[in-house]
Design a protein around this nucleic acid. Structure first.
Lengths: 235, 235
DNA sequence: CGAGATGTTAAAAGAGTGTTAAATACCGTT
DNA sequence: AACGGTATTTAACACTCTTTTAACATCTCG
């Protein structure tokens, strides 16, 4: 449920006081923050490939807008989430804003909670746009006496419910959903733990062990170890 | 899953220039568009049963808000997706908009890409609400000794009436109506609090706690926590 | 046999949750 | 508009369960 990779937010704003507040807010939420004091700095720091950009209108001058427009012309940043901060409601700004294509407009006075929630929303949306979401295809898989349901988070073995904690559940689901396919520990870690999570691959072994115990004979028989390679569900 | 019928969007806005842009955007996305120039026109054209309504605040007067409020009082439009456009950046407006039952609140300067993404979001959500479960269909659900009635807003436990405040009631209703299904806190927040309401997810926990207390043993036994995942009613 | 790999267990570390109380927002009355 | 009561939200702390680490046992195969 938590983001695997640390998300980086590039802030383009020359209001030092606000930036320090914003930085604190974002970092508390687990984002990493890069600060650019002016438009050209933004353009140079954009190469770090931030997850999103938050720009201010820069003291009423439409530097932020130009920036926004410029970014949108570059193919690689065409879908980069951009949030424009505002402190005024000047119509001229609005009119221009229309054509530049920001993802959200946030008033500078909003609370940190609202800000981070809206940022989250924007990120979620842009994420959905990119992968236009397959969502969860099936929510239930069956393998012999075993029925795993994602929606209800239940595992039924011969009709009896067995509780699995989250990681074990995900592990089992992944393996069963790909019956026969061998997953290396690394692969499992990447798929379930996420890209930049640092855990020993022995952790996987422990979980596999627990799963086997919980599933009893069924586990012993079907959850197979391929030595030197990984684990799989027997085909 | 999707019905083949073209989705119709009713636009209520008197800003001709903007409307023509909006219409172009939406039609390019495959929606069919109906335009109403003022509030009463909206009310008359609403009978065409559009898939969603997009209204502007109409030059600062809160016509849009009144409209929104009015629509919400009519049972048949209780769940009609409403998006409120604005060019103002006052938080009070946003607060009011949401309070009055808008599904999303979008700044007018936002790009067409963003606009259609958010529209899609709103539609998806309202769709899920309608098809996903019984919810609106039945106004009374029973679960063992528990009877929940939406119309009368009452909860009977072993025949004894128990009062639940609104949020707790909605929460319980949603969970019971989808017995067995696990809802993450995010999901609950989106479904009950709405798309653009920003509260800590711990709020959900507090409500769950209260519900459990009120329902006594029944609550303890049936309202289950799946750690790291969410809540559900035991199947 | 012995080295590397895996199974297993228990304890440490960590994350997630229950619960209470206090703060805030809301609502109907006066 | 001020008031009082209720509902909702936040914040804090304790506690539980999960996850991870580490250590040791066991296995496999050249």
């Amino acid at each position: 449920m938590q983001n695997a990779k640390t998300k980086t937010i590039l802030i383009g704003d020359d209001d030092f006081q606000y930036v320090s507040w914003l930085r604190a807010t974002l970092e508390k939420e687990g984002y990493s923050v890069i600060w650019a004091q002016n438009a050209s700095e933004v353009m140079s720091k954009i190469s770090t490939k931030p997850t999103a950009v938050i720009v201010d209108f820069m003291r009423g001058q439409s530097v932020g807008l130009d920036l926004c427009r410029e970014l949108r012309t570059l193919p690689e940043f065409k879908h980069l989430p951009i949030i424009v901060l505002t402190r005024k409601c000047e119509d001229s700004d609005e009119a221009t804003g229309l054509e530049v294509g920001a993802d959200d407009y946030i008033h500078k006075s909003v609370s940190n909670r609202v800000l981070s929630a809206r940022l989250r929303n924007v990120l979620k949306r842009s994420n959905a746009l990119e992968s236009d979401n397959v969502e969860e295809a099936a929510c239930e898989i069956t393998l012999g006496d075993l029925v795993i349901n994602r929606q209800t988070h239940t595992v039924l073995l011969k009709g009896k419910e067995i509780f699995l904690p989250r990681k074990e559940f995900e592990l089992l689901w992944l393996l069963v959903a790909n019956k026969g396919k061998v997953f290396s520990r690394e692969m499992l870690l990447r798929r379930i733990w996420g890209e930049s999570v640092y855990v020993t691959d022995r952790t996987v072994d422990v979980h596999i062990c627990k799963i086997r115990q919980r599933l009893g004979d069924f586990g012993q028989e079907n959850l197979e170890t391929i030595k030197g390679v990984g684990y799989r569900i027997k085909a």
